[in-house]
């Protein structure tokens, strides 16, 4: 199986590093030819408005959308979660997403950088131990469709528990960044469970 990491902007090298810890040599994907050579994709953290703008300019936006619809396994962290959501709120006017997961995601839901934090998260489907989760200007899931499995939740500043890790079939998304920690359980879960 060939795994690619969308490398238009963001912490794609950290995802490549995390995948290599899981014995997978991932390739960086910026063009259609690279997209065609892979079986699964990771969408990194970064600035979602920048990633969507570059994906459109370099004409990988529609091809990625099509591959997602055709069943390609995809994992997105933070900006990647936004890109995989069918609906987004607090977005830039007219901001589009690849979509695929039947969720509504609120951008920068936990607040600005001053509100960014790390904490332990429990996700029994992914790991037996707690996962150290880093939330950076992070989104949360506001509405979850009936076919979406919630893998982890976290109580937001509004006192309400929100989904922060979700899966719908071949698509996985987390609001946090496992790629900047040395816990590879989310990447392993993606490779071993979601991609199979």
């Amino acid at each position: 199986m060939r795994v690619g990491v969308l490398a238009l902007q963001g912490d794609f090298r950290e995802h490549v590093g995390a995948l290599s810890h899981c014995q997978v040599q991932a390739i960086e994907v910026r063009r259609v030819s690279e997209l065609e050579s892979i079986d699964a994709l990771v969408i990194p953290g970064g600035e979602s408005t920048t990633i969507v703008s570059l994906a459109k300019t370099f004409e990988v936006f529609e091809p990625i959308k099509k591959r997602i619809a055709a069943g390609m396994p995809v994992y997105g962290s933070c900006a990647g979660m936004i890109m995989l959501a069918n609906q987004i709120v607090a977005a830039k006017e007219g901001q589009e997403t690849f979509g695929g997961i039947d969720i509504t995601v609120r951008r920068n839901a936990f607040g600005r950088q001053i509100d960014s934090f790390e904490s332990d998260v429990i996700a029994p489907a992914i790991s037996n131990s707690t996962i150290r989760a880093v939330f950076i200007r992070a989104p949360w899931v506001e509405k979850v469709g009936k076919d979406v499995e919630v893998l982890a939740t976290y109580t937001g500043t509004d006192g309400v528990s929100h989904a922060v890790a979700v899966r719908q079939g071949h698509l996985l998304a987390t609001a946090f960044h496992p790629e900047i920690t040395d816990d590879y359980s989310v990447h392993r879960y993606f490779l071993e469970k979601v991609c199979k």
């Binding site: 490398a7 238009l8 902007q9 963001g10 912490d11 794609f12 090298r13 950290e14 953290g45 970064g46 600035e47 920048t50 933070c78 900006a79 950088q113 001053i114 509100d115 960014s116 934090f117 790390e118 904490s119 332990d120 998260v121 707690t130 880093v134 950076i136 200007r137 976290y154 960044h177 900047i180 920690t181």
Partner: peptide, 22 residues
């Protein structure tokens, strides 16, 4: 769960997300 803000990982991580950008 105890929530920690302003850690080195949270601060440096923010910059990681800006990489490859202007």
């Amino acid at each position: 769960m105890a929530q920690e803000s302003g850690t080195s990982r949270v601060k440096r991580g923010m910059a990681e997300m800006l990489k490859g950008g202007v």
